[in-house]
Amino acid sequence: MRIAIFTDTYAPEINGVAKTLLSLTSYLEKNQVDFRVFAPDGKTSVPSVPQIERFMSLPFLLYPECRIALPNLLHIKQSLDEFNPTLIHIATPLNLGLYGLHYGKKHHIPMVASYHTHFDDYLHYYHIPFLQKWFWMYMSWFHRPFHKVYVPSESTKAKLLAMSIHDQIELWGRGVNHILFNPNKRENEIREKYKIKQKKIILYVGRIAPEKDIDIVMNTFEALPKRCREDAHLLIVGDGPLLKTMSNHRSEHITFTGFLEGEVLANAYASSDLFLFPSSTETFGNVVLEAMSSGLPIIGANVGGVKHLITHGENGFLCTARDVCSFAEHTMQMLENDQLRTNFGVRARQFALTQSWEEIFARLILSYEDVITMTKQQFSA
């Protein structure tokens, strides 16, 4: 098996798609499966790796973590001719994905796609909803030639089926690093670094952007009863277009850390008391699973991929999307009941331990093999 992966975002970029693809390629390398990744360059320069081919790019307007590549098409063709892929996996539908689609169709190579981001929802947040019709027309055209389309959650599958994007849509879940994201990482370093004096820490991790409903995070904290708010600290981890503006509103009860990763991020999770994540645009919710693995109870929106991770009343609470009263009520309930918070955290960790990358990627490889076999049978018939 030789897999060519086309994506418009890849490590060291920090987002769910890039992290997922890095985990995938690490698994392929570990299991000696040949692969090539065709990806844009990024803001951060990285050492050259033979399996990763990068191209000049510009940031994508709606989502700067995805970049519009300016690929050398002759170079890509020569590289693909030499690699001779048995399967093409296209993760994003921009420039590089379009060329991968063209090459696969021309050379009759089995192709699969994965759908990661609800860009149609983003259009509302950026005040251009009139583009939705054209977006779905393009997505329908783009995905038509693939043998399978992978999605991270049942709600995403239902959405794509309703939009008639494809009739072969398969779940490709997500895992988490249980060793890195671990309740045992709890320590006082985070409190000391950010001078946090309050007893309880409410944590948000994610992009500081409109489509993440970051305004609901702030409004929820402000809507808490005074007794809760005075005893709590809101720790906001992440970068994004609204960070500079929002971080100007300094408070002894609110801290913006900017981007964190690795052990520092793991410590921030484990050293907090609950995870507040109101985003209603998620196809999955990787940070929710990281928080659960760290032993945190979750307060999330009852919509999109997040609702499949939270069992209401067992490891967290599901709230009506963008309903500040609902989020504030359940946050207050969690803050004021230590035993409830502890029990939910234990169950959250137990659930996260069932989400193994090894099993998820093993099933994906079997699906790849199924597509390759099915294509061979079609052409030999």
Results as ranks from 00 to 15, higher is better:
M292Q: 12
S294T: 05
S294E: 09
S294C: 09
G295P: 02
G295R: 04
G295S: 10
P297R: 02
P297H: 02
I298H: 08
I299N: 03
G300D: 10
N302L: 00
N302K: 09
V303G: 14
V303L: 15
V303E: 15
V303A: 15
G304R: 05
G304F: 03
V306F: 08
V306T: 12
V306D: 09
V306W: 11
K307L: 01
K307F: 01
K307C: 02
H308V: 00
I310D: 02
I310E: 06
T311H: 14
T311I: 09
T311R: 12
T311G: 08
H312L: 00
G313W: 11
G313E: 13
G313M: 09
G313K: 09
E314V: 07
G316T: 07
G316I: 03
L318W: 14
L318G: 05
L318Q: 10
L318P: 04
C319Q: 02
C319H: 13
C319L: 09
T320S: 15
T320Q: 15
A321S: 14
R322W: 06
R322V: 00
R322L: 00
C325T: 06
C325V: 02
C325Y: 14
C325H: 12
S326R: 05
S326Q: 14
S326I: 04
F327H: 06
A328H: 09
A328T: 03
E329M: 06
H330V: 01
H330M: 13
T331P: 04
M332Y: 15
M332W: 12
M334E: 08
L335M: 07
E336Y: 08
E336S: 10
D338G: 10
L340G: 04
T342D: 11
N343I: 06
N343L: 11
N343Y: 13
F344M: 09
F344H: 03
G345E: 04
G345Y: 10
G345Q: 02
